[in-house]
Design a protein around this nucleic acid. Structure first.
Length: 423
RNA sequence: GGAGAAAUGGCAGAGCGGUCGAAUGCGGCAGUCUUGAAAACUGUUGUACCGCAAGGUACCGGGGGUUCGAAUCCCUCUUUCUCCGCCA
């Protein structure tokens, strides 16, 4: 959520930038500013009124002490009217605040200057490509066939136990999952991230904190009996650690890495993209999160991209990096890089990571702030990225490394798997 | 799940319905002293909103109520602790 003061001071800039998202903010920004004027006015009136009745109350107290019951009683009558007025204004204030918040929730983050304009993923800008060639025989199989052939993932069994989108990994398939998780976490720790193991369910406040609520509640599994949500990504519990927190400048940068399963309802998904491991309701992901000083967040974003690049290099996967266009950019993000690996049998680029700088947008909802050198309280910048999401990595590993002798495990993983081939 | 106790500033811990944004201690920050440090002493030390400012308003776990006036009384929710039961 954008700050109202920022909106007031940058009206034209915001409207201009949001055009990149194909979002016409003209009306809503006007409404926000008018409502905010209204809010200020109401508070001034209310404060004056409360101030008056506070003083009266004090006088009445004094009069009682001096034993002047009659005069006190007279003053009491005055307070009744004040009270009526102030309750009315209080109600008005709450409703204005609610309405203002509702409007603010509707305005997406403003894209960074370098975000290309565009409507869909077709307009994303490829900024880097590793052109590693994968040559496969004519007998190449998609990963779901390979999974069956080597008996490492059972999709049908998952359907029996739970439903579609909940695969069962077994044998070397399960081991490979565990190997990838450990590999990703170890690599992150080498880059200075502290490991976090968070809860897999979060409360409503946390959903609001990172922006899943109020808009995307349909994406999360919800348990009404306990009023809890299953996390769609470790970003939610990890970033919410810093909700309502005031940091010190020397705390920067905060670097956390967490492995969690992720749960997504994926309502409305259909067709080819959901085949095999491409889109699941439950999947594993290692997530990196950073809290950074506003002046350093873009530097940090680059470092995070470099980190994920390193992972893909070590896994020997062909990949490319896309700078998302305005139309593809997430609601809360100012700049996002998508990392895509090439899965050679499907002959498709699969998104395996999305690394974003949210600037102060998330921090404003979270109320995550720091005390700057002048002693002023300022919002932090938050960033996160997958490093990495497992299923599509697994898909690409299976497809790209299929040989006559089985699936070849990349060098960097053998220490973790304990085997060199799946056969 | 049953019974009881509690929730106050960064932490610890007072708090009688008005003089409480809240004693005191510790910690933090600034200063005096010192070659430097420690000690000692002095001062300072929450957040948000409104206001050019002076200043005002709100916040003592959350929400509601009583009252002219609530950290203090009442209701409710949440959390924590102790005891009992169950259990990975």
């Amino acid at each position: 959520m954008l700050q109202t003061t920022f909106i007031r001071e940058n009206e034209t800039l915001i409207i201009e930038r949001l055009k990149k998202r194909n979002f016409d903010a003209t009306t809503i920004i006007r409404q926000i500013i008018e409502l905010d004027d209204n809010r200020k006015k109401t508070q001034q009136d209310l404060d004056a009124l409360l101030s008056e009745s506070n003083q009266l109350a004090k006088q009445i107290g004094d009069l009682f002490k001096q034993g002047k019951q009659q005069e006190a009683a007279a003053l009491k009558e005055e307070t009744a009217l004040l009270k009526d007025k102030s309750t009315f204004l209080k109600e008005q204030q709450t409703s204005i605040n609610d309405e203002l918040l509702k409007l603010l929730y509707q305005v997406p983050n403003i894209p960074n200057e370098i975000v290309p304009a565009g409507k869909s993923d077709a307009d994303n800008e490829i900024v880097f490509e590793n052109k590693k060639q994968i040559t496969l025989s004519n007998q190449k199989l998609p990963h779901w066939e390979l999974a069956k052939k080597y008996n490492i993932i059972d999709f049908e069994l998952g359907v029996k136990i739970t439903g579609a989108g909940f695969p069962i990994y077994r044998g070397k398939g399960a081991k490979l999952q565990r190997a990838l998780i450990r590999f990703f976490i170890d690599e992150a720790e080498k880059s200075g991230y502290e490991e976090i193991m968070p809860p897999l369910m979060v409360n409503e406040a946390s959903g609001y904190g990172t922006g899943q609520l109020p808009d995307k509640e349909g994406q999360m599994y919800y348990m009404p009996v306990d009023d809890l949500y299953m996390i769609p990504t470790a970003e939610v519990p990890i970033t919410n650690i810093y909700r309502d927190v005031i940091l010190k400048e020397e705390d920067f940068p905060i670097k956390n890495v967490g492995y969690t399963p992720c749960f997504r309802r994926e309502a409305g998904s259909y067709g080819k993209d959901v085949r095999g491991l491409n889109r699941l309701h439950q999947f594993d992901k290692v997530e990196i999160v950073q809290i950074q000083h506003p002046s350093k967040s873009y530097e940090t974003l680059d470092l995070m991209v470099e980190h994920v690049k390193g992972l893909l290099e070590k896994l020997e996967l062909p990949y490319r990096i896309a700078r998302l266009c305005g139309g593809d950019l997430g609601f809360t993000s100012a700049l996002t890089y998508d990392m895509e690996v090439f899965s050679a049998a499907q002959e498709k680029w699969l998104e395996v990571s999305s690394i974003s700088n949210f600037e102060a947008f998330q921090a404003n909802r979270l109320k995550c702030r720091f005390k700057n050198k002048e002693g002023k309280i300022e919002l932090v910048h938050t960033l996160n990225g997958s490093a990495l999401a497992l299923p599509r990595i697994l898909a690409a590993l299976l497809e790209n490394n299929q040989t006559e002798n089985g699936i070849k495990i990349p060098e960097a993983l053998i220490a973790y798997t304990g085997f060199e081939f799946i056969n």
